[in-house]
Simulated scan of single mutants.
Amino acid sequence: MAFEFMPGATVVGISYNNGVILAAEKRVSFGNFVVNKNIKKTFSVTDHVGAACAGMVADMQVLVRQVEALAKIRKLETRRDVAPNSIAKLMSVIMFERRYFPLLTQVIVGGINTKPEIYTLDPLGSVLPDDYAAVGTGAEMALGIMDAEFKPNMTEEKAKELAVRAIRSAIQRDAASGDGIDVLVVSRTGHREETIPIRNA
């Protein structure tokens, strides 16, 4: 499996007292070539579940669209919101079914059910629950910041600050990451997005 040939990226997910923060930088690069400086890697799957992906842009977009459609059907059948762990399991099944021709993407799924939940998925569909996570070529730098500064039950503002700082740290050292940060906040009241520009990235 040549997962090391996936395009670079830095994506983080952090749980806080009332939801989760998903953040990703906007650069897409193959080797030394920057293909695009304005790609969205954070997605709202339902009102209370989001996903952030690193890897092949087409693969991440197809996966999210497919899961979004399945979640809508599931909601119509059960007449209630689909839980974050159900979304993560749906993605896992799709990715595992494609294991011989894998979707070259790593995913962080985050949302709120009775409490905030975060799951990391690799290209073969392994589901790993955690309080915070990072994927992509800049993940090591981002995790270094989050390991040192993450605290349970942080406020939304502190969690967002930490997510942005973790991605900024990765951007400074990872040439495949840069050009701004998309932030997706998923809370009990729904979701909202914002973009933070980065100078000289």
Score class of each variant (00 low, 15 high):
Ile118His: 05
Arg165Lys: 14
Phe101Thr: 13
Asp81Tyr: 12
Glu149His: 10
Ala170Met: 12
Lys37Gln: 09
Asp81Thr: 09
Leu70His: 06
Met1Leu: 08
Ile181Lys: 03
Ala54Phe: 02
His191Asp: 00
Met6Val: 03
Lys151Leu: 11
Leu70Ser: 08
Met60His: 12
Val183Pro: 01
Asn18Cys: 10
Ala52Arg: 06
Ala139Phe: 08
Ala134Gly: 10
Arg99His: 09
Lys151Arg: 15
Lys89Val: 00
Val82Lys: 03
Gly138Tyr: 10
Ser126Gln: 14
Leu70Met: 13
Ser86Phe: 00
Ile181Tyr: 01
Asp131Val: 05
Val107Phe: 01
Ala163Lys: 04
Ser44Ala: 15
Met60Ala: 07
Met6Pro: 02
Met60Ile: 00
Met91Arg: 06
Ser169Tyr: 12
Met154Glu: 09
Gly110Lys: 03
Thr114Tyr: 09
Gly19Val: 06
His191Asn: 14
Thr78Gly: 04
Val107Ile: 14
Pro129Ala: 06
Asn200Trp: 06
Ala176Ser: 15
Leu121Ala: 09
Lys75Arg: 14
Ser86Val: 10
Ala88Leu: 05
Glu97Pro: 02
Phe101Ile: 14
Lys37Ile: 10
Leu70Val: 01
Asn38Tyr: 00
Asn113Gly: 14
Pro116Lys: 13
Ser86Lys: 01
Ile145Glu: 10
Pro197Ile: 08
Gly31Asp: 11
Glu117Ile: 05
Ala159Arg: 04
Thr195Gln: 07
Ala176Cys: 09
Lys160Ala: 06
Arg168Val: 02
Glu4Trp: 06
Val67Phe: 06
Phe96His: 14
Ile196Val: 13
Ala24His: 04
Gly190Cys: 03
Asp130Phe: 04
Ser86Met: 06
Arg168Ile: 09
Ser86Ala: 14
Ser169Lys: 12
Phe3Ile: 13
His191Gly: 01
Gly138Gln: 07
Glu161Lys: 13
Arg192Val: 01
Val67Arg: 02
Val135Asp: 09
Leu70Glu: 15
Ala83Glu: 11
Arg27Val: 01
Val34Lys: 11
Thr105His: 05
Thr189Gly: 11
Leu90Arg: 07
Lys151Met: 03
Ala139Cys: 04
Thr137Leu: 05
Gly111Lys: 10
Leu121Ile: 11
Val185Lys: 02
Lys75Met: 14
Ser169Val: 00
His191Phe: 10
Leu90Pro: 00
Val34Ile: 15
Met141Ser: 12
Gly125Val: 08
Ala134His: 09
Ala54Glu: 00
Asp47Tyr: 01
Met141His: 03
Lys115Phe: 13
Val82Cys: 02
Leu103Ile: 09
Arg27Met: 09
Asn85Val: 10
Met95Lys: 13
Asn17Leu: 11
Val49Lys: 04
Phe150Lys: 03
Thr10Ala: 03
Val186Thr: 07
Gln66Tyr: 14
Met91Leu: 11
Ala69Arg: 09
Asp122Gln: 07
Glu157Ser: 12
Val11Ala: 10
Pro197Ala: 12
Val12Ala: 04
Gly13Tyr: 01
Arg168Asn: 08
Val135Phe: 04
Ile73Asn: 08
Ser29Ile: 07
Ala175Ser: 14
Val127Trp: 08
Pro129Tyr: 02
Ala201Cys: 13
Val67Trp: 01
Thr189Cys: 04
Tyr100Arg: 15
Asp59Arg: 07
